[in-house]
Nucleic acid binder design. Sequence first.
DNA 1: TTTAGCACTCGCGAGTTGTGAGTGCTAATT
DNA 2: AATTAGCACTCACAACTCGCGAGTGCTAAA
Lengths: 381, 381
Amino acid sequence: MGLNARKNLILKSVVDDYIGTAEPVGSKSLVNKYSFNVSPATIRNEMAELEELGYLEQPHTSAGRVPSDKGYRAYVDHLLQVEDLPQKEAEVIRSYLRENMDEVTQLIRRAASVLSEKTDYTSLVLSPQYRKSHLKQIKMLMIEPGRALVVVVLSAGVVKDRLVRIPEMLDAQQLMQVASAIEDGLSGMTLDDITLVTVAAAARHTPLPESLINQVMYEAYLSIKQADQLDLYLDGSHRLLAQPEFQDVRKAHDFLETLNRDKLVAGYMSELKEDQDISHSDYENNEELVNNGTHIKCHAADDPAYMVRIGQEILLDGLKECSFITTSYKIGDTVAGKIGVIGPKRMAYGKVISHINFVKMTVNEQIRRLANGEDENGGIV
Amino acid sequence: MGLNARKNLILKSVVDDYIGTAEPVGSKSLVNKYSFNVSPATIRNEMAELEELGYLEQPHTSAGRVPSDKGYRAYVDHLLQVEDLPQKEAEVIRSYLRENMDEVTQLIRRAASVLSEKTDYTSLVLSPQYRKSHLKQIKMLMIEPGRALVVVVLSAGVVKDRLVRIPEMLDAQQLMQVASAIEDGLSGMTLDDITLVTVAAAARHTPLPESLINQVMYEAYLSIKQADQLDLYLDGSHRLLAQPEFQDVRKAHDFLETLNRDKLVAGYMSELKEDQDISHSDYENNEELVNNGTHIKCHAADDPAYMVRIGQEILLDGLKECSFITTSYKIGDTVAGKIGVIGPKRMAYGKVISHINFVKMTVNEQIRRLANGEDENGGIV
DNA sequence: TTTAGCACTCGCGAGTTGTGAGTGCTAATT
DNA sequence: AATTAGCACTCACAACTCGCGAGTGCTAAA
């Protein structure tokens, strides 16, 4: 199932053109715009074959042709060369992500915002998952009788906290005792491994009566568990309404409705795996195209590793008319959240990928900075 | 500029009908549906007069008529009787807002979500503003050398915190010293009154060298200032796309674009005043309608106090085709955030108002519970 | 004051037609 | 064998017409 060079070129041109115009592209206009040195008739024959092979489809007889999901897939996997971001653009983004930045949450929000703005599509950012992180500290701070702040510090250098109620008769001294008992018992464990039982066991190493401890212990447990809650940040959801494929309000409605179901989307995103099928195949130098039609390719060259889902490959119902490009950012070694851009299948893949890669790199860099306590200019404070 | 009883009835019927159908309503269908005991011709004459007075308008000659902003205003101010929520519906909402609730933020989010779902419009909830609250405590908790958590406790019983960097050489002991010096100097002041100067003055009551203190002091200041940051929660923005007035994608786009500008919308909402012009006027018992055409009425009977902005009265550009109903909820005595529903001008005012009132009451109630440490069933823990 | 009657208006949907960009097929050309 | 000119055909789309229906305002009679 290989394609010759000319078919590749035609396929690429069709996709490029369709990305630009959103109009079915025909043989004649193709010849005009891309200065092939063959006649429209030849292109026609080739296009007919491409259609037979499943890379193109016709909305109706005697309109031009439109890429199929498979066509987009081939385009993304083999025909697209991703360029680096222009220096100037890169600088703008970098400085926006550096300025006055002191919390991971804020960084992530800005990443979403800048991605959406620069690509003109909708961006999605998933907060990091801490399930595999280790608990480093757990402190409890008395706010007033009956209320305390539980502070959970994780190995990745991340701090989460939560306001809780505690028994009125517990004083600050006693609260600290319980907290440090729990900390002693749990520190070093991963969040996944901490259960109500382990917390209870740890808390029991205290001279205080159980009646006092129980509630504190339970709240501590909840606070720890809450630390790895997934948050989703969405930005620029209005932008897709400007795309011609969403002129139909019903589609726009369904799209937005799906996106607004945070938990569903967050769950889906967190399940996405990058390390799927990285066989670069024997495709090379635009000479031959190999595609088994189902595999999802991922560019694993470590740094610019992104993943593209096209159309039906997206398992969320309202988004099957879209393409979704994601990549992971890291806190520490393993903990990672995801950054993504969603747009029409007809999206400007090259542009989006280069932006998403750059944002991912900058976010990683910046997170490292925040953790190491460097200031905005890279020096140590 | 009074209206007689029949004109009022006609106006009310027109608005009711238009709310239901989104179609211009004509004299004949009006007579059919609402069993007036006069002929269409009479209604026509009355409607013509209502148009002359500015309460109705015609999209084009020989279509039916549609309420003008002024018409909606009269409807809302004088013709609408707001009913209480059915017991059953109320119970559903109340239990949803009570279940597993332990943070104000979570409560507010749920309030937005339930409001949007039950009304089928878009809801907006503004976090409380703490500018007038007093600082009660400020604690600093050492996380690791060079990093600390600043915890700010306000009079309303609200706790905010923020992760900051501090000089590496500062130890836990010293950090506490600085923190308690600042707390001593500032506690009792309102957030509005705290400035960099007052913080600096407070921090100076410490034996530590200035070089160490300065950064800590500055971070403390920022943390305090950040505590009264406005947050906006938006829910159900897709729902308005189902309304016929947003079939035009451009309108939908503009609407969403405006709503997505959090800071703009939050700023606008926070400026909204309820205590504007409460002259109930001499209108009574559907006998006479008085309206100066510009004033914005507000129902100030303390508990169900809401405010309605219609069309042009909304000062945000993308929302001038909408109506916006807001009310305030309270934390403690003075600190308040806002709850709002935005929909087409043709919105089901009665339904929305009764929902918003109930949600507001329940939120108030629930906040009191959270602050007093009562559990979900109303008992003391 | 109300209403019947009437001429008038105008959006809307259905039907018609022309145009243009596209197609596939075939036969001639390279 | 691959390419291309030529041609008949298809089909979405925009423009136009036309009739219908629901609405109007006005006038004159009840």
